[in-house]
Design a protein around this nucleic acid. Structure first.
Ligand code: MN
Ligand code: MN
Ligand code: ZN
Ligand code: ZN
Lengths: 155, 155
DNA sequence: ATATAATTGAGAATGATAATCAATTACACC
DNA sequence: GGTGTAATTGATTATCATTCTCAATTATAT
């Protein structure tokens, strides 16, 4: 069980790529980031930790992090691509509230099994899957009902 | 059971929006389009049918088509948003080949049921879901195996 | 026919991401 | 520890899908 940094170092060596200070700082930023983040979030975290890595380098490094299976692209949200760490983490899918943006993570064994079945049926070799359910979280349902009701009352 | 055009007309009236020649031509283009299309595909279809509707109007009309539940956003593919018609069509999900871009559609009743269950569990009110499985279609698996093998042989 | 709010096309703006390029640097090898 | 070389970087520019602006036009209710 290696750390993110060790795993990234190993991945780079494997490909004859260099382990630069910039890449070291980016990995350090990644492990500090919360659940779902985009390129700009990585950049901001770098600033927080006194690093001057450029945004261009952040964008250049993301594919390396994806290829090394340290992070994965999870969602598209407001025209931005969101990533999250996956190394040493369990796979899961997402419920996304279209009102407040809240993201609920879930894992369902049966869904996973059914997906395997579907892939077998179509002789499809899956590398990744994404189940995203959009709608309203409990909080927003309540909020919006209140609005609908008061709107009706006013009528 | 209304036609796409009738439904769109009705939707527009409901919202005090105008049924313009441009919107008529866009609806006519939509029903002629194949499975998955983007804004540019709509624009090209308009050209084919001798219409001069601008791309700006296409982009402006897409949200109306989505709101009226005639089309839905299905996939992000190569930084483009793909849509497909959903009116009078069965819901389905997608297998996408990351090598050749082929899209296989499937429907699985059990997956749908499990999703309802998951939403109940989290008191989540779903408006939409999307299950996308990425990987290699049978054809590409074969092609790539050949490549891998010949690469190994050369070594 | 009139009034008015909605709609349009053309072009400019936006914004995330990718590409360029000259200067720098990691690191394998001696 | 120096050397050579291909990889890397930051700064800048380019890309390109999508949105915005605005003046001119038009659908539709009255
Ligand atoms: Mn997640
Ligand atoms: Mn489809
Ligand atoms: Zn919410
Ligand atoms: Zn394929």
């Amino acid at each position: 069980m290696f750390s993110y940094k060790e795993r990234f170092k190993y991945f780079l060596k494997e490909r004859n790529l260099k382990y630069t200070p910039e890449r070291k700082e980016i990995i350090e930023a990644i492990v500090k980031l919360q659940k779902h983040f985009d390129a700009e979030d990585i950049y901001q975290q770098l600033r927080r930790q006194e690093s001057n890595v450029s945004l261009a380098t952040v964008y250049r490094t993301i594919p390396l992090l994806v290829d090394s299976e340290l992070i994965i692209e999870t969602l598209h949200c407001r025209d931005k691509v969101l990533y999250e760490r996956i190394y040493n983490k369990k796979h899961h899918d997402h419920l996304v509230c279209i009102n407040c943006g809240r993201i609920i993570e879930f894992y369902n064994e049966e869904v996973e099994k059914l997906q395997d079945e579907i892939c077998r049926k179509y002789q499809f070799l899956a590398t990744e899957h994404r189940l995203g359910i959009k709608g309203y979280c409990k909080g927003c349902q309540d909020k919006l009902n209140i609005k609908i009701n008061s709107a009706k009352e006013k009528k």
